[in-house]
């Protein structure tokens, strides 16, 4: 028992030293490098003004009460707006939209200075999303499986 204990201590320290000499890093240097996300990534939501038929299903299905229908005075049609303070990115609104007016983008790395800025009424909701890291020219990395290492990041071709 005593020998087993000593052996395990030695093994633990040897493993630590192994990684100290030959580190097995997995860090992505984010602002300089960014991971290319999958096609189905649930990022910020984009709204297509022309496709929308104002059915209101998105506002009904939203479990977090983030989506709301806005109607301007004198207009018949109501249009959806989103509040990102509440949104949980579940994707119900995107799934239920009968005309695919709502779609997910692959952008998630955005920041807001004020809480009010997270409120997106219909006009603002149509704006395009851009990843700040990619705008600054981040190297694009793809996650691949590696037999020896587990996950690995390789530059995208």
């Amino acid at each position: 028992m005593f020998r087993g204990k000593v052996r395990r201590h030695v093994e633990a320290i040897a493993t630590g030293l192994k990684y100290l000499v030959k580190p097995n890093r997995i860090t992505v240097y984010y602002p300089e490098e960014a991971i290319v996300l999958s096609e189905r990534y649930r990022g910020m939501i984009h709204y297509d003004w022309d496709k929308c038929i104002s059915c209101g299903l998105c506002a009904m299905i939203c479990p977090a009460d983030a989506m709301k229908m806005y109607r301007k005075k004198g207009e018949k049609k109501a249009r959806p707006g989103i509040n990102y303070q509440r949104c949980i990115f579940c994707g119900y609104c995107v799934d239920i939209c009968p005309t695919n007016a709502l779609s997910f983008t692959r952008v998630h790395d955005v920041a807001f200075e004020k809480l009010d800025e997270m409120l997106y009424p219909p006009e603002k909701f149509t704006s395009e999303w851009r990843s700040p890291a990619e705008e600054r020219g981040a190297r694009r990395l793809r996650v691949v499986f590696d037999e020896e290492r587990g996950l690995k990041h390789v530059p995208e071709q």
């Binding site: 990684y19 580190p23 860090t27």
Partner: peptide, 10 residues
């Protein structure tokens, strides 16, 4: 730095 190297970080 050492802790980061061993723990797959920077």
């Amino acid at each position: 730095k050492i802790a980061a190297r061993v723990q797959m970080r920077v």
